[in-house]
């Protein structure tokens, strides 16, 4: 699999590696997918990178590659910001080859990472018709998670037709941030758009939301989908090739 902009892959790894340390990458002719839960089975990440999004892609037979995201992250830190990246696995090999090429083709770096034997449990995630779908700038969402984490370890997300309200409370008090739905949309990327079938009010652990925001560099926008008593879906699109979707179980009143 070859990416002209290796930085896209680095952003994917940085978006995943705090939530899951290692994961099984499913490679097929259609592209690469990954699904993994965090150690407490409270959150899940689902990655899709379609083959047509790569500069070149070939997969002669389906492979499940157990990869340490922590190690992969360390190797990718050596990549130049404009490098292209090629990842390959030979048929009977127990390692993955990561090749980086500088833009002016004068520097070639090659790394080989040992593959891991992971028994990955797969969850079936049904297509859900969510009560509420919010689109907002990913930088804004990252900022809200950071600000709310000052006040408490849980964030209540309430939606109304006017907008969406994030609130948190804890020992030192409470705080809330309300975003009004954008009316005159000049720049789509900066808009707050709320499609609401019915109002929702759900509470989530802010540390997971903050971990999800590590994937924000992938996309200027983030999608938040909510339904009562249903895990939150937090989506960052990967331009022209797929998405990173995070799912987080809500916190329930005892």
């Amino acid at each position: 699999a070859r990416l002209l902009h290796g930085s896209i892959f680095a952003k994917v790894i940085e978006g995943l590696r705090e939530l899951v340390n290692e994961a099984t990458w499913e490679c097929s002719g259609n592209g690469i997918t990954l699904q993994a839960m965090d150690s407490s089975h409270v959150a899940l990440v689902s990655l899709v990178m379609r083959s047509e999004g790569f500069e070149s892609y070939r997969c002669d037979r389906n492979m499940s590659l157990g990869i340490s995201l922590v190690s992969m992250s360390k190797v990718l830190k050596t990549m130049g910001k404009d490098d292209s990246l090629t990842i390959r696995v030979n048929d009977d090999s127990d390692s993955i080859i990561i090749a980086m090429e500088s833009q002016n083709q004068d520097k070639f770096a090659d790394y080989e990472l040992r593959l891991m034997d992971l028994d990955s449990e797969h969850l079936g995630i049904p297509d859900t018709d969510y009560s509420c779908a919010i689109k907002m700038p990913s930088s804004e969402f990252s900022r809200i998670c950071r600000d709310m984490s000052i006040m408490g370890d849980s964030v209540l997300i309430c939606t109304t037709k006017e907008g969406v309200k994030f609130s948190a409370k804890g020992d030192l008090g409470q705080g809330s941030i309300r975003l009004v739905q954008t009316t005159n949309i000049e720049k789509e990327e900066e808009a707050v758009i709320i499609e609401m079938k019915e109002a929702v009010a759900l509470t989530f652990a802010v540390r997971y939301l903050s971990m999800f925001c590590k994937a924000a560099p992938l996309s200027p926008q983030v999608g938040l989908s909510l339904s009562e008593d249903t895990p939150l879906m937090c989506e960052f699109k990967i331009a022209e090739m797929g998405h990173v979707r995070f799912y987080l179980a809500p916190k329930i009143e005892d």
Binding site: H41, H122, G124, A249, K251, D254
Partner: peptide, 14 residues
């Protein structure tokens, strides 16, 4: 007090 649910009650193992 609120307790944190896991994903399993919502999504079944495929």
């Amino acid at each position: 007090k609120r307790h944190q649910n896991q994903l399993r009650p919502y999504y079944s193992s495929a």
